[in-house]
Design a protein around this nucleic acid. Structure first.
Lengths: 198, 198, 198, 198
DNA sequence: AATGAATGAGTCTTCATTCAT
DNA sequence: CATGAATGAAGACTCATTCAT
């Protein structure tokens, strides 16, 4: 299962890109910063990625894959959808917390990038929302969730709620130990709502 | 009630800035684009704002004020907090819808800007969240909302939810006529949650 | 002998120009600095002088006139040329010392200005050198100076020597009380030379 | 003894800088002029020098070194200090004449530059004056020069005199053949002074 | 395959000058 | 006459990208 030398170098560049882009944002990050961080020459970056934008996109795709593998695959469908959601939230918050800088990029769904790349990012986010929609749909099918809700809308709402709390974790530097509780509370609110039970 | 000529020009530059920054993002926007959009010379922009960054910040502050006046002040406390929230949501969604470009900037709380300005933006957002927290707190005090929720967390969640739906409105170009319904549904979900009533 | 209001304003602009140009040099000085220093509007400067360069030249001409009046006219031909030279040196050094900033400009015969203005400055300096040559010539005619010297060359040498000592006065902030002595020593060297008498 | 390619390029930029700065002065010279003169791209200049000012300073330091090597090192202490001075003057005048443009910069001790760089230039000049003072001091020690003169003052005077004559050479385009004679005459005046021997 | 020196297009910002009031 | 708001030409500097080694 060893990666070829080539694959290794490609990876180290992506790692470096994640670090530098996260810290400085797309426009402030310089290719040279990234190449130095990766310990390779500036020209080498262009051996593996055709442009700064391509590198950026690849980095995000990579990050998403890692996020997906950590959060969803590390948490397959199980009996209760609610339980699964709770587990997903915990894993997600931990992922965020483990990789502050990198996590910031995942939350920052919006960038001051050109329109084209902006749309591309929206697509990326939409996919996550659709994954969420499937889960919610499953919950409705199993009778755990109300059937009178617009699943697509609900997915957006849950996504936004989770993103906002993720931002809170990063910006307010919530300590690791409180994440499980935070996940539970967040989910509780999303599931039961604000209103007093009637 | 006439604005001085000077104030008028300052305003037209801010208007133009909102338009151009929204469309292109901070780094892609050129001062010249903005000055042309405003119908003034390039140098004139610098008569009113000391730098591109200063213009950007001023523009956001301005936008926030407008948003605040439209949404919150256009919707003072009333008997029911739930009713007030619903009204706020409708106004907010309409504000978003009316000024797609401009609205995009309000949602895009995160930019690929330098760390400093990024923090400044976070502060701006936090203020909005705190406004929300006050409303929720009032709801709890009046017995409309459950008392066992962390108000600060709840405010983040509502904020995130609303932001996500706002993004949906902009990106999927939801027609104006459906906004009231969308506001109702969003609020319903936030208030009652996903789970089936027990 | 009262100056008209107009003349007064023109003068205050020239004063301000001398101050600001001296402190910052031609390119670093901004017309606005000068107008503010003069207590007039920016546009007013252009009522009196057609351009920055014209203002600069006028200011130097003015300064030269003042210098000439102070130094040469305040010291008409008299019996001994040597005595006259000594008096001239004292007056010159005092002029320099009195108006450090302004004096600096007189010494700084060379500027990083465009070729054209540079030549003009050289002419200004050459006139002073020619005045000096006349004095030396008179000294030779009176038998005080050697007749075998090239008067024109000698004038350059004296001019350079005096300029260098003037620079010393400004840069090393020689106190006022030592100027007379310095003038005497400078003149002694110029008159008797370095070499031991044979 | 071959310079590395890199060193070569650095040098050609310095050469070009000397030429362009000399001709146009600091503020009128454009980096692009210099880069074109050097036959390199605009960006390349910044590979070697961090800013226009840094380039300017480096160029002057370089020039000074060259001047020093040509004039002083090409003329080591010998029996007679007077002889040495005469040789130095000849070499100096030839250096000036050989590199009119470049020489102009050496003479133009004063520029319309910011205060900071101005001070730096004064230091540069002061060093030369101190070198001169050492020579004069040696002359006094050897009994060739009078002992009752202030060596530091004398050095300033000689420096100023030489600078003024150098200016004459450049501005009046004294032909090469007359330089030796000019050096002799200049030195004679400096050594014996203007006054008739008593 | 890897490098980094070289490049020049692109942009913010300054400031002399103009001109409507 | 006096003003200062408006202008836009000009230039230092950055950095993605290329390419000879």
């Amino acid at each position: 299962m060893r990666l070829g030398k080539t694959e290794e170098k490609r990876d180290s560049i992506l790692q470096a890109a994640a670090k530098v882009f996260s810290k400085k944002g797309f426009y402030q990050a310089r290719i040279e910063d990234i190449s130095r961080e990766a310990g390779v020459g500036k020209g080498t970056v262009y051996e593996y990625f055709s442009s700064k934008e391509a590198l950026f996109k690849n980095m995000l795709v990579d990050l998403n894959r890692e996020h997906f593998e950590t959060v969803y695959e590390g948490c397959p469908p199980m009996g209760s959808v609610v339980r699964r959601l709770e587990k997903i939230l915990v894993l997600h918050f931990k992922f965020i917390e483990n990789q502050r800088d990198v996590g910031r990029l995942l939350i920052e769904s919006h960038f001051s990038l050109g329109k084209e790349i902006h749309l591309w990012l929206w697509e990326l986010q939409l996919e996550k929302i659709k994954d969420l929609a499937k889960i919610i749909d499953a919950g409705a099918a199993q009778g755990e969730f109300r059937r009178d809700v617009d699943v697509y809308l609900a997915a957006h709402i849950v996504f936004g709620a989770v993103a906002a709390v993720s931002g809170m974790i990063i910006m307010e530097e919530i300590p690791s130990g409180k994440l499980e509780n935070l996940a539970r509370n967040t989910l509780a609110l999303v599931l039961r709502g604000l209103k007093v039970d009637t």
